[in-house]
């Protein structure tokens, strides 16, 4: 068991641990941040358009499977093979989210229920598909085979800047996605429509917006982002494989934390993903003090609780101020 006198040292480790190996550590932060930035973006984007995408985990793992399948099963098309594989992840995640989207738009099935179910369906389906595949399954390790080098995401020179880390070009793709989503949400008529439907479906209908189409598209885009996250993590060539275990991918749920902490704002999500990756990495070094690394998950949960509390208090204060205004 851990010793209370080590608490301070442990605390310092959480805050600085990620930096203790210099550029390698920073590279690791980006590596950890890549998938959760995208799942966070997926949840945050859906949230901005009035949907709660709790199914990012399912879309993530389906995306990962599609990526691995495309890279292993299809003959190499040359150095751009990884683009094809990522595209497969993107499309697969999008299709997986399309189902709850359609159900929501046309049958009024709440997306929380249907996307939770899609998480389980996705997980078991991928386990089945990998476990029963002759060429994807590594029987000895009970996991998927490594992806061939030609379909791994290139390092884009980042390994030179952060030597020794697992960083790869995925972080650049994730950051580009953040900016694209930010532009879509805030600058385009498309984003204007999606947000309007999210805020008020009836008023959007009144305004002549096809609100059913908007819901389906929102969900599909959110799913595509989560699928892309799966592709970026499993095609990184960093020794990550789909393991045949009955556990829902954690990245989807971490995405919810990231989105909450970033207030669903794309730029906020970029930084909250880096922050959570940073303290998660610091958490690994907690073992030096006999703390279990799971402590960091508790700490993240506490941080999110307190940011939620601060928001509640904030909205309470502003509501109070507004009331005063009305009583004028």
């Amino acid at each position: 068991m851990s010793n209370p006198s080590q608490a301070f040292g442990g605390f310092i480790t959480i805050l600085t641990g990620a930096l203790s190996y210099g550029f390698k550590g920073i590279g690791q932060i980006f590596y950890f941040a890549t998938p959760i930035m995208l799942t966070g973006l997926s949840v945050g984007f859906a949230f901005k358009t009035g949907l709660f995408n709790i199914g990012a985990s399912g879309q993530f793992i389906i995306g990962a499977y599609a990526g691995i399948y495309t890279s292993v099963a299809i003959k190499s098309i040359g150095p751009a093979h990884w683009v094809l594989a990522l595209l497969a992840s993107f499309v697969a995640g999008s299709l997986w989210a399309l189902i709850p989207g359609l159900l929501k738009a046309y049958a009024n099935v709440h997306e929380v229920i249907s996307s939770i179910m899609m998480n389980y369906i996705g997980m078991y389906l991928v386990n089945y598909l990998v476990g029963n595949s002759s060429f994807l399954f590594d029987q000895k390790r009970n996991q998927s085979v490594p992806v061939p080098e030609y379909s791994q995401i290139p390092k884009m020179g980042l390994d030179k800047v952060f030597p020794g880390s697992s960083i790869h070009g995925g972080i650049i793709i994730a950051i580009i996605a953040v900016f694209i989503i930010n532009i879509i949400l805030n600058k385009t008529t498309f984003g204007y429509e999606l947000k309007a439907v999210g805020y008020n479906r009836d008023a959007s209908k009144y305004a002549g917006i096809n609100e059913k189409k908007s819901i389906v598209l929102s969900m599909a885009i959110a799913g595509a982002l989560a699928g892309l996250a799966g592709g970026l993590l499993y095609l990184a060539g960093s020794g990550k494989h789909i393991e045949i275990v009955d556990v829902i991918a954690a990245e989807g749920f971490t995405g919810i934390s990231v989105a909450l902490l970033g207030l669903s704002n794309p730029i906020g999500i970029l930084f909250s993903a880096l922050f959570i990756a940073y303290i998660t990495e610091g958490g690994f070094y907690l073992q030096l003090y006999n703390f279990s690394p799971q402590v960091i998950e508790i700490i993240i949960a506490v941080i999110i609780y307190f940011s939620a509390f601060s928001l509640i208090i904030q909205s309470f204060v502003s509501r109070f101020n507004k009331r005063k205004g009305e009583k004028e």
Binding site: K187, T189, Y192, A196, Y199, D202, A203, S204
Partner: peptide
């Protein structure tokens, strides 16, 4: 329920049925 998107600001609500018209929209950008 119908008239306003209450969480949009005044300007955004003022173009609720016109945001896609050439005066407010250029190639998909507001």
């Amino acid at each position: 329920r119908y008239g306003l998107v209450l969480d949009y600001n005044l300007a955004e609500n003022s173009i609720l049925q016109q945001y896609f018209e050439p005066s407010f929209n250029k190639k998909g950008f507001l």
